[in-house]
Design a protein around this nucleic acid. Sequence first.
DNA 1: GCTTCTACTGTGACTTTGTCACACAGCAAC
DNA 2: GTTGCTGTGTGACAAAGTCACAGTAGAAGC
Lengths: 218, 218
Amino acid sequence: MGISDYFPIWSKMSRSQRKLLETSALERTVPKGTILHSGSPDCVGLLVIRSGQIRALILSDEGKEITIYRLFERDICLFSASCIMSGIQFDVNIEAEKDSQLWVIPTDVYRYLIDTSAVVANNTNKIMASRFSEVMWLMEQVMWKRLDKRLAAFLLEESRIEGADDLKITHERIANHLGTAREVVTRMLKYLQSEGMVTLTRGRVDLTDRRKLEALAE
Amino acid sequence: MGISDYFPIWSKMSRSQRKLLETSALERTVPKGTILHSGSPDCVGLLVIRSGQIRALILSDEGKEITIYRLFERDICLFSASCIMSGIQFDVNIEAEKDSQLWVIPTDVYRYLIDTSAVVANNTNKIMASRFSEVMWLMEQVMWKRLDKRLAAFLLEESRIEGADDLKITHERIANHLGTAREVVTRMLKYLQSEGMVTLTRGRVDLTDRRKLEALAE
DNA sequence: GCTTCTACTGTGACTTTGTCACACAGCAAC
DNA sequence: GTTGCTGTGTGACAAAGTCACAGTAGAAGC
């Protein structure tokens, strides 16, 4: 699969622009857990996900965290190149959730492309609007939804991504995704277990009643 | 003041683009309290604020609200034209906080401009990145800051905007800005009063000790 | 001036979520 | 078996949200 397969606007780009992308994109393979970007000064370039899974998160001063969105195959990560998007003034961290293969498009190359092509600029806009939408969705969840519902929804989502009912995940990691405290997750999982929705073992959560979980998540 | 004064990229636009903007922009004057946009289907067009003050907010199913950002003179509101930005999938409400004068740029006109001009597209991008940054800032506040600090910061900000220490605002409105409940604001203001930071009267909050408020807000 | 009405404010009781401190338990390495 | 580390469990308490009212300032009308 060449890089052309990852750009839906490929056909609307000029021959020279395509060439530039093809020759400048670097391949990179990273193991699970790699921090790909942290804070604004760090400006590796645009990341195109070929395989694997990436999460974007924010950190508090005390080290608490919350996942703001996740990226999968074919997704493009703009914020690893936040320095070229004037107007961005916040720090996101980008972390590989699984072993991943990426293309890295150098910042100066992408800068050149958006400056010279309305198509590329508008596509960038569209990508940013998508991320913005995900953050707004999260804001609504955080503001108006109870934690038990958010937890149930997270477990179902995780199960969907993994394609399995037995999730290998610790309470701590769940808490870091949801932006809450580990003890709270422990207590709430305990409750879900008492209701027969999950079975808990060290480092594992098994979904035993999807229907009930879906009903809880709404 | 012509519309040219509100576009920092005016000099980089073509003669025909400028002409198009000048002839198609509509003037609109709205009183305080006007709902300029609500939800995604509603697509009035791009708003350019000539004078006054606008706030963007989101609503929960039960009618609770939180201000996500505010717009002042010279700011541009993209989300009143969210239909032209493919990728946006959330509902924002736009409300005039004060009597305001606006220019409305029809959606089809702006659509044409971003499609044909990389400069306009990139500027749009920059505006979106700014709003994105404001929402990320809010997310950090909501997630990691205590309400007493957020309240103190809000009162100081409000005082800065109004250029006065006596704020004509109800507890309810403050709660709607911060995304919390009125009773919580009442209790917290009561506490601030007991500490001598504010004086409360019906429909009014007077800031009596800025230093202490600033220290609280950090 | 006096009443009436409404929007605003105050408060207690209770739930949910977050914080802190520490005990304990599973599992792998030695 | 002992040791050590990483997870998990729990109680007590604090912060914030919810619910159900009661009180009350101030404008509007008489």
